[in-house]
């Protein structure tokens, strides 16, 4: 007997589902030969922006999870990432030298031996072996200011995968944000996947809008070329997206406060 969490939701009968399936199948056939085997499938990250005066809560998170299940999403497992904000460890706190204020570190459960540093202001992304953390600790030039966890559930939807992610501080349970990660498995080219991802995002937004939730999903894709990243999608692209999405979450939280 199938576990309840794996039970498929009944297929939607809405008219837009048929063209989507057709488009997905057509795109997959067109592009499957073009994707490079060593590359990662393309991903895009959307963050939930609550309406003015409303808050992010577990009720909204549950509703969003139901939206994924209504698209026949099947639970495949869990995903986790951690993001740390670093600040300079200054000998004299009164010194006003211009050190980066947006120095982030990201670890992902799917890449346990890697760590990613991002300095958004200078458009720098660095992939390193996780031993870089020990080096940074020994250098004692920067220390952790804030740590956040991105905890989520992975759903499979044919050629797509979706992750429903909650953003929580590392030493608290309070929900600080919601993100959705959409992954299209057959393609690893940022450019070639643009159209199909845009179509999927439109459909996703339409599904969510039917729930009449107090907010909407926003997608601002970073300019990867500014970070020196190629069209071939990698974990560095994911790290850059996490940083960009989090910046948007913080900005929207400040606007609401």
């Amino acid at each position: 007997m199938q576990a309840p969490c794996c039970r498929r939701a009944p297929p939607l009968k809405s008219s837009w589902r048929v063209p989507l399936v057709y488009k997905i199948e057509r795109k997959r056939k067109e592009n499957v030969s073009l994707s490079l085997p060593a590359s990662m499938p393309i991903r895009c990250i959307l963050h939930w922006q609550p309406n003015q005066g409303s808050v992010v809560n577990s009720q909204v998170l549950n509703e969003i999870s139901q939206c994924v299940e209504s698209l026949n999403g099947v639970k495949e497992g869990r995903c986790k990432a951690s993001l740390t904000f670093y600040r300079p460890n200054l000998r004299d706190q009164s010194v006003t030298i211009d050190f980066p204020r947006d120095f982030l570190g990201i670890s992902m459960l799917e890449q346990p031996n890697k760590y990613y540093f991002i300095i958004r202001g200078q458009k720098i992304v660095l992939e390193a072996d996780s031993s870089i953390l020990l080096i940074m600790e020994k250098l004692q030039s920067y220390k952790s200011k804030v740590a956040l966890h991105f905890e989520g559930v992975l759903y499979k939807l044919g050629d797509f995968q979706m992750r429903v992610i909650k953003v929580v501080p590392s030493q608290a349970e309070s929900l600080r944000g919601i993100m959705i990660e959409i992954e299209y498995l057959p393609i690893s080219s940022v450019e070639k996947s643009k159209q199909i991802l845009e179509e999927f995002i439109d459909i996703w937004k339409e599904v969510v809008s039917k729930k009449s939730l107090a907010g909407q999903f926003m997608h601002t894709e970073p300019n990867y070329a500014e970070y020196g990243l190629s069209d071939n999608y990698t974990s560095q692209h994911t790290a850059v997206q996490y940083a960009a999405a989090l910046a948007q979450l913080i900005q929207s939280a400040q606007l609401r406060n």
């Binding site: 951690s82 740390t84 904000f85 570190g105 670890s107 346990p112 760590y115 996780s130 953390l133 020990l134 940074m136 600790e137 220390k143 952790s144 200011k145 804030v146 740590a147 956040l148 501080p169 590392s170 030493q171 608290a172 309070s174 600080r176 913080i250 939280a253 400040q254 406060n257």
Partner: peptide, 17 residues
């Protein structure tokens, strides 16, 4: 950021991983 997020001071970097 500390106004938006819970601030965790002096967290040992190696705790992250």
């Amino acid at each position: 950021l500390s106004k938006v997020l819970d601030c965790i001071n002096n967290t040992c970097i190696s705790c992250v991983m």
